[in-house]
Design a protein around this nucleic acid. Sequence first.
DNA 1: CAAGTACTTTAGAATAATTCCAAAGATGAA
DNA 2: TTCATCTTTGGAATTATTCTAAAGTACTTG
Lengths: 135, 135
Amino acid sequence: MTGTSPDFAARLRSAGLRPTRQRVALARVLFGAGHRHVTAESLHAEVKATRIPVALATVYNALNQFRDAGLLHEVVVAPGRSYFDTNTGHHHHFFVENDGELHDFPADKVTIAGLPAPPRGTRLSRVDVVVRVRR
Amino acid sequence: MTGTSPDFAARLRSAGLRPTRQRVALARVLFGAGHRHVTAESLHAEVKATRIPVALATVYNALNQFRDAGLLHEVVVAPGRSYFDTNTGHHHHFFVENDGELHDFPADKVTIAGLPAPPRGTRLSRVDVVVRVRR
DNA sequence: CAAGTACTTTAGAATAATTCCAAAGATGAA
DNA sequence: TTCATCTTTGGAATTATTCTAAAGTACTTG
Ligand SMILES: [Mn+2]
Ligand SMILES: [Mn+2]
Ligand SMILES: [Zn+2]
Ligand SMILES: [Zn+2]
């Protein structure tokens, strides 16, 4: 086994966060495989399955801290619930309205032309495209 | 005074809703002038100012019914709060992240090219573009 | 390594937005 | 006018999220 498992502790440290047992466990679930879209509840369920005890409040704390540190993006597509996205690159989303599923698609193939100038006194922050679909 | 004030009662009836005192009062506030983006709370505050008593639960009921009847669109741009939009036409939004303000812009000048095909088994429902800006 | 301090976790209480409930009131068809 | 149906309403309930303060852990320093 010479697998190069990412060093989550180091990644947390360089984000200015102490690599505690629960933050490392959460980072492992979040960043261990491909990109993910999670809710606080779904992440809590997953991390509990790893047998490392993490309170739901800690999941909320960590998600907000990871987001503030730039490790996650928060995606708002449905009322009443936040999705956190491990894909922090430039991309957009399909949202399956039936089951609340989110799917990424890269932004570099998408061209948006003809956007008006931002309202006076404001600076562009980001452009989010949500393609809503139904089964 | 020969002003042609829109007949809100009729509009409600043809949407399949009884024109009750509170639904008419809400419709007047919502549809009496140009396009609006309201929250349940903000609409409740406005309608109360007209001295017609309307419970907050009724505002929620009416907003959901108006939306289901196609008189309003629900816009989700910020976590924890829903905006209801009297503009049901094809358009997109600037969202001023600082103060939670929404501004419309028409969709007909905007061109979106290169969108991938919807995930198999799904049909396109609508494409929402949110341009996030900051002051 | 021992201490000390600052940061973290946590259970449970608190908030905020929204929905539910069951009783009282209003609407419209007959 | 009558009556069945729909609507409103205050307050309780629900859901997602944040707050609090006490107990625990991680880094710094000696
Ligand atoms: Mn948050
Ligand atoms: Mn709703
Ligand atoms: Zn994504
Ligand atoms: Zn709008």
